[in-house]
Amino acid sequence: MSATLVPTEIGVTAAEAIRDLCARAVGGTPVAEYAEAEPLAWEVLEAGGWDLVGAPEADGGGDATLLDLVLVARAWGETIVPAPFLTSLMAKRWSVAARDCEGPVTFAVADPSWSQPGHVPFGTVAPHLLRSVERDEIVPTPVGKPEPFAPSLRATTVGVVSELTAQAGGELAVVWAAEATGCAERLLAMSVAYAKERHQFDRPIGSFQAVKHTLSSMKVLAETAETAVLWAAIESGHRHRAAAWALDASLDVAERAVQVHGGMGFTWEMGLHFYLRHITVLRQLVRGLPR
C-alpha cells in the first residue's frame, strides 16, 4: 500500500524534452560514432534548466518527485549520450552548493575493486565534485586515473569517496537503475527491428520461435524492470532491492540483445557493447552506494 504510480507534469514534460534533446543530438547516428565523442554540450542541458529539474522550486528547480526522475532517467538511458547529466541532476537535487556551481557536478562512489577507493562517473569532464551531502561541500574534481571500460560514462578513479546520505544513496540507486531500464527498452527495440529485417533461410529471423521467444523473454524483463524502478521510487524501504533487480534484468536484456544480433552483435561498430558496458558499470556504481 502506498502512494500513486502516476508522475507529475514536470516528470512527463522533462522526459519528453530530454528524449527530444537526445534525438536532436544523436538521432539516427550509430552509438559507436558518438559514445566516445561529445555529441551534446553541457550548455544545452544547462540552458534548458534540465539539470535543475529535481531541485526545490524555491531555488529555481522543477521540484520533480523521484518517480518523475525515473521517467527522465529512462529517457536519458535510451541513447546513453555521454554527458554528466544525471550526476549533476542528482547533486543539484541535494546540495545548495552544487546548485550554485557553474558546470556539471559529479561524485565519487565507493568501489573496492579499484586501486583507488573512489569511482567517479564523468570524472574526466565534470569540474565539480560533491564531497559531502550533509556538509553541502563541493570541491574541484580531483584529477583521477581514467577508467575507460565504459566510454559513455567517462569515469575515473580517485583517492576520495563522497559522503552521501542513505537517502541520497537510495535515490541515486533508483535513478541509475532507471537509466539502465532505459537502455534495456532501447536494446529491445533495436533487437526487434533487427529480427524483422535480418533474413536467413529466406525468412526474417524474428519468425523463428527460438529467436521470437528470446525477444519475448527480453520483453518480460524490460516490462518488469520498469515496474521495479517505479516501485523503488515510491517505497523508500525497498529502493535497493528493487533497483538491484532492475539492473540485473536490464543486463540480461543487453546480453540477449547481443545474441539476437548474432555476429553483428559482437562487432565494435554495431555498438551494443557500449550499452553492455554502460549497464555493467551502473551496477557496480549502485553496489557502492550507502544504504
Partner: peptide, 17 residues
C-alpha cells in the same frame, strides 16, 4: 509459456509469424 511467448512476440512486439 511457449504459447504466451508466441503471443508476446506476435501481438506485443509485432514480430513476423
Amino acid at each position: 509459456s511457449e504459447v504466451q511467448r508466441n503471443i508476446i512476440g506476435d501481438r506485443i512486439l509485432g514480430l513476423p509469424r
